[in-house]
Write a protein that binds this DNA or RNA. Structure first.
Lengths: 142, 142
DNA sequence: CTACGGGTTCGAGTACACTCTCAGTCAAGC
DNA sequence: GCTTGACTGAGAGTGTACTCGAACCCGTAG
């Protein structure tokens, strides 16, 4: 399979695949006669796993570490397990955090809720926090 | 309250506070005699809210939009509610996503689980996906 | 033969959200 | 009077993860 095909099947762009290979996240791919990358379908499993790590917020640095351990064979499995466990715990905390914030957001939305036309009957966190007009807006968010 | 104090109390750095003011996320602060920012404690509520939006992954662009609506008064409440609801839904999806990925991670960790010394008895998703040595590492992750 | 639709490398550019440096001002304390 | 520490605005720099452009090569269909 060539890079375009892999791009389609993996959901990464060809650009990104080359980039991942460059930094070592993907193994250096075999090249065919005209030095074009030729992939085995097995790589899809690894990419899918990388995507999962990424989706859960693992920085590339850590993925690289994992990839390197993996390339060093079965002896590194305990280390890999530790890495994944730490990551899992961080993700768990992050989820808890999001859920807590979501609750507050929901409370605030409820504050706006009945107010189809600005009734603004508030009690606790009130949608209208902070106040004070925002004053001069300063252009450049960059 | 001066900027240093606000920084301590809000958890933002003074740099970040000035930056937020520059881009319009924080209202233009009143200056004292020597043109130093002088804050009212009320701003803390707004900052706390911003931090919540940020913690849930809202881009600054959208926070700016919200801030602008808020500065335009009660008439924009329906719009603000819509904005928050959309955001809440995105966050909900994101959480669901994370949880799904977490399950897969856990499954993979279980694969490593018994293997305190590389027993590697696998069945389904197997921790050892993909295989193939990672080949030449190419330095620059930048 | 020539256009085309891929592929190749390398380096530069982008987006986001800060974060820091610089050169200078200012009030309070010794 | 002078040091100290906090403040000022403007702009440059940082880290992360891509994303794109330029210039080129290569095999096949018309």
């Amino acid at each position: 399979m060539k890079i375009g095909e892999l791009a389609k099947r993996s959901g990464l762009s060809a650009h990104t695949i080359r980039y991942y290979e460059r930094i070592g996240l993907l193994p250096y791919a075999d090249r065919d006669g005209s030095s074009q990358r030729d992939y085995d379908a097995a790589i899809l499993t690894w990419i899918a796993f990388l995507r999962r790590l990424k989706a859960t917020g693992m920085p590339i640095r850590e993925m690289l570490l994992y990839a390197e351990l993996r390339s060093r064979g079965a002896a590194t499995e305990p280390e890999r397990r530790v890495l994944l466990e730490q990551h899992r715990n961080r993700v768990g905390e992050h989820i808890a955090d999001l859920q807590a914030n979501l609750l507050v957001l929901d409370a605030k939305i409820s504050g706006y809720a009945g107010a189809e036309k600005g009734t603004d009957h508030n009690d606790t966190g009130a949608p209208n926090d902070g106040r004070q007009p925002a004053g001069k807006r300063a252009a450049r968010t960059r």
